[in-house]
Design a protein around this nucleic acid. Structure first.
Lengths: 366, 366
DNA sequence: GGGCCCCCGGTTAGCGCTAACATGCCGCCG
DNA sequence: CGGCGGCATGTTAGCGCTAACCGGGGGCCC
C-alpha cells in the first residue's frame, strides 16, 4: 500500500525544481507562472494524465519504460502532486488533529512530540489546535475547528475533567482518541497508570520508615491530580495509616513553595509526595529556607521526571512518565480506529517508573 | 474580510448535528450516509447551491430573509463546508507549516505555542513537522513534506547553523520565515536580540565588581550560542578585561554540572555567564557540592528564564526571552509575506530582559 | 416613458485529481 | 484460426466548491 510519497524524483537535491523551466525545455519560452499539473507532465511524457496518476500511485499496470519517461517529465517540470485535489476526490486528507492544552508544559509538549513522530512514520500530518481555556466549550470548539478543516481523526490531550466531559458531547462521526483522560469518558483512552505511580511513590516513602506521607496535589479538576491523590490515599489506607489532609496546588513551582512553607512549619512532616516536579522544586526551596534538610529531615518525591529533576538540590526522587510512548500509543490507536472504522479496543495503561535519587531517605529518628 | 468561519449556526450547542436527519425532515426517510453538501442545503432552502456559498462567504448580495432560510437549512442538516473543496478552487488552504527541532524543549515549545495562537486568531491552521536531526537534509526534507501537503507558507524554527544554511537552498516559490536563525541566511528572520541579552548579563556581573566573567556556552553550531558568546566577549573586550577561555556545553543540566565542576576548582572564578538556564542549574549544583557559595563566592547568570528558574537555589538571575512574542511576530511576518506576495521587510529584534534574582552578588573581597 | 444600473439570484465552467469504464493489442488455448 | 482474457493505456465523469458571467425586476434619472 504505497501512496503518493514515493515520487522519489522530487526528493532533496532537486533544488532547481522551483526555477522556471528555462533552456532545457522544448520550444516553450515563456516562464510558466502556473505550477505544472498532471496533464502537463502527461503531455511532456506523451501519455495521458491518468497514466501519470498511475505512476504516482504505484499502479503495477504501467510499463517500466513508460514509468521512466513519466518520472523524467515530472523531474523536468518540477511537478508536485496537489494534495488538496487528491484529498477532494479520495476523501482522505492524511491529516490528523491534535487538541491540546498549554503545549508549553513539559508533559503535553512531549506527548505532542511523540504523536508527531509516530504520525510522520505513518505518513500522516498533524494539525494542532491549542485550547483557549480549560472548559467544555473550548474543547468542543477546537474539535469543531479541526473537523471543519478536514482531518481524518482527532486526538485530544485532555488531562482536565471538564475537557474530558466535553468528549461525551463530541460528534460521533469522527474517530477520536483521548490521551490522559479519565476512563469514564466516552472516547477510548490512552494513559499512564497514574495510580500505580502514586502508589509506588507513597510505598517507597513508607518503606523508608516514615510514619505517614503528606501530599501536595494538583488542581482537583485535573484527572491526573485526582488519580495520584487516590493512589496515595489508598496506599496509606491499606497500610492502616492516618491520612493527613492533602494540600492542593496548581502545578506551579510557586504553589509548591507556598504550600511547602506551610508544611515546613510542622515538625511532624517527614515525607511529602508532591504531584509534580515543578511543585516539588518549590517545596525543596521552602524546606531549605526553613532550615529543614532534604532528605535528612524531610523526604520528597515528585512526579513526571522533567529533565531538570536530576539536578535539583538534592536530586529529586520522582515518578517518570513516558510521555513520548503515550503519544505513540494514542496515535496508533487512532490510526487503528480510522482504518478499521470501529472504536479501537483499549490500550493498556503505560506503566510509570519510580526513579530514586537523593531527595528521599530513611525517616529521622523520633 | 470574513471567511467561512462565520457560519455561526454550526457553533457549539448544536450537538445533534451529527445525528441522522431524522423526523423533522420532509419526506426523506432513509438515514443519510453521505455528509450533506451545498446543494443539499440549497434544495432544502429553495435556493441554488451558489446562494448557499454566498451566505457562507458573507456576500452582501443576499436578502436577509434568504440568508435566514439558508442558515436554518444548514443548521437542520448539520451542514459543514468542505474545506478541501474550497481550498482546491481558491488555491488557499489556510494552512501554515512549522518546522521545528525538538518541541520538547521550553524554547521551541513556547515559540510554537505563540505561533499557533497567532495563527488561530488569523484564521489559519498549523501543521507541525519536527526534525529528525539537525542537518541540512532534514530541514529540506521537512520543508518539502510541508509544501507537498499544500501549506501556504512555512515557518522554520531554526536555531541551528546548518539548519539555517539549508534555508539558502530552500525553494523560493513559497513564503518562508525563519525564527531564531542567523541574519546571514536567505530567509527573512525574526529573532530575540541574543547579543544584547548577553551584553546585559555580562555587564551586570561586571557592575557588581567582578574582575572578569567566565562563560559556559552552548554548542558552537547553534546560532544563539554563538551570538551569546559574542555579546559576552565584546563586553569584556570593551571593558579591557582578559577573556577567559569559554567552555562549551550541550545545553543540558549535565553539561552544566560537569563544566561547573571544572570551574568550581578554580578559585579565580567569581562570576559565570551560562548560556541557558538548564546548564546554569547543573552549575549551581556543582558549586554547591564544591562548597562554593552562590552568590557569596560565585555569581551566576543564566539565559531563557524557564518557569523553574525563579525557584532554583538560589533563585537564578537570568535573561528572559519572550518566546511567545517571537512566535507571534514571526507569524505576522509570514502572513504579510503571503498577503503581499513579496518578502517582508525585517522585523526588529525582540529585546530580552535581564531578571535579577538571587544568584548574583557583589564580588567577594580578595 | 425609456434606458440604465443595481440588487438578488441562477447557470455554467472549471480547480487537479482519482475511479470506473472503454479500448486496442497481444498471446494463448481449444 | 477464432475467441478470450488480461495488460497497458485512454476517456469520461465526477469530488464540493468558487468565480465569472448571465438575467429578470425594480427604482431612478433625464
Amino acid at each position: 500500500m504505497q501512496s503518493g510519497d514515493d515520487i522519489g524524483g522530487a526528493k532533496p537535491g532537486s533544488g532547481r525544481e522551483s526555477m522556471p523551466a528555462g533552456h532545457g525545455d522544448n520550444g516553450e519560452t515563456r516562464p510558466r507562472l502556473r505550477a505544472p499539473v498532471m496533464s502537463d507532465v502527461g503531455r511532456l511524457a506523451g501519455v495521458s494524465h491518468q497514466t501519470v496518476s498511475r505512476v504516482i500511485n504505484g499502479s503495477p499496470h504501467v510499463r517500466p519504460e513508460t514509468r521512466e519517461r513519466v518520472m523524467a517529465a515530472m523531474q523536468e517540470l518540477g511537478y508536485r502532486p496537489n494534495p488538496v485535489a487528491r484529498a477532494l476526490v479520495t476523501g482522505r486528507s492524511k491529516m490528523l488533529g491534535v487538541v491540546s492544552f498549554d503545549t508549553t508544559l513539559y508533559g503535553p509538549a512531549s506527548t505532542l512530540f511523540g504523536i508527531e513522530r509516530a504520525a510522520h512514520e505513518a505518513g500522516y500530518f498533524i494539525i494542532v489546535a491549542s485550547l483557549e481555556a480549560l472548559d467544555r466549550s473550548s474543547v468542543i470548539d477546537a474539535v469543531d475547528r479541526l473537523r471543519r478543516q478536514g482531518v481524518e481523526g482527532i486526538l485530544v490531550i485532555a488531562p482536565h475533567a471538564q475537557a474530558g466531559e466535553a468528549l461525551l458531547h463530541a460528534p460521533t462521526d469522527m474517530p477520536l482518541v483521548a490521551a490522559e483522560a479519565g476512563p469514564e469518558h466516552g472516547a477510548p483512552v490512552v494513559a499512564v497508570d497514574q495510580v500505580a505511580g502514586a502508589v509506588s511513590a507513597t510505598r517507597h516513602l513508607l518503606d523508608l520508615g516514615h510514619q505517614t506521607v503528606w501530599h501536595i496535589s494538583g488542581p482537583r479538576d485535573f484527572i491526573e491530580a485526582r488519580q495520584r491523590r487516590e493512589g496515595w490515599r489508598t496506599t496509606l489506607n491499606e497500610a492502616g495509616i492516618d491520612i493527613p489532609e492533602p494540600l492542593e496546588g496548581d502545578w506551579s513551582p510557586q504553589a509548591g513553595y507556598e504550600l511547602g512553607r506551610r508544611l515546613s512549619r510542622d515538625q511532624q512532616v517527614s515525607a511529602v509526595f508532591v504531584a509534580n516536579d515543578q511543585m516539588a522544586l518549590g517545596l525543596l526551596r521552602a524546606m531549605h529556607e526553613a532550615g529543614r534538610e532534604v532528605p535528612g529531615d524531610v523526604s520528597v518525591v515528585g512526579f513526571d521526571d522533567i529533565p531538570e529533576a536530576a539536578y535539583f538540590q538534592p536530586p529529586l526522587t520522582t515518578v517518570r512518565q513516558d510521555f513520548i510512548e503515550m503519544g505513540r500509543r494514542s496515535l496508533r490507536m487512532l490510526l487503528r480506529t480510522i482504518e478499521t472504522g470501529r472504536r479501537a479496543s483499549a490500550e493498556p495503561l503505560v506503566p510509570p517508573e519510580l526513579v530514586v535519587r537523593g531527595s528521599t531517605g530513611v525517616a529521622p529518628a523520633r
